[in-house]
Amino acid sequence: MFNLVRAYLYKTTKSKIFWVLLALTTCSAIAMFSIAYGIGNKSINENISNIGFLLSDMNMMSIVGAVLATTLICSDFDTKNIHHPIISGFARIQIIISKAIVYWLLLLVLVSPYIIVTIIGLSMDSTFSMGRNAAGFLSILTLTTSGSFGEYVTIMITMTMVYLAQLTICILLAFVLRKSVLVVAAYYMMSMFFGQVASFQNSFEIMNNILSFTPYSVEFITINVSMSKGDIISAVSICVIFIIVVLYLTFMTFRKAEIR
């Protein structure tokens, strides 16, 4: 399986799309940071916070993560490259796990600009704000008042884990839908839906119960240092279980799937 991971990493990093996505997240992270800094220091009007939120990791990763899944998985169906590992004697579960490992590694790279600006922001003695809008790393940046280095690292790892778990659903979508446009559209609609549902989560007990068992719960997308250790462990556990369930579903749909 190491060979597969190495091959997929090689192929995806040779793709222009991956580097465009990285440039996109880097520019967006810098813009988000600058806007949050400007609003926090009242040098920028708070009305611009909607644009700042649009460029935040929460929104960008929904698009970037789906596009990355299409580059990594759907393109193999388009070019019939998916034939090769099967003919080479790899089990279909090995193909799925290898794709997932490469997907997570590359997502880490893509989300890293947001991690970096958050670390820079937390190390500065400044106030950051995005008005009432905050989620993901932006919420860590704007809602964190004080904390130890260890707490910062813990919540950032947890936040990254939440992203990986949320976006793992793109692997399932890519193996099922196989067409790039469908995957991007489906995931974007899903993320919009979960975003809207999360905002009403506390008003409906059933919805609250359902979402609290997924990484789309509002508690997990607004992580900050005020969270208890128990909440962090619960978030990580739910993310791990969610990933396992999604990968299992992916395997069940792909194990006997016909490939054209």
Partner: peptide, 28 residues
């Protein structure tokens, strides 16, 4: 075994050598 079915399964954005390197990595 090795096979080429229906159409050559190649990565269009890579060179011939890049394609072979990708498959060399895959096969170890």
């Amino acid at each position: 075994i090795a096979s080429m079915i229906e159409q050559p399964a190649i990565s269009p954005d890579m060179t011939a050598k890049g394609n072979l390197k990708y498959h060399r990595y895959m096969r170890g």
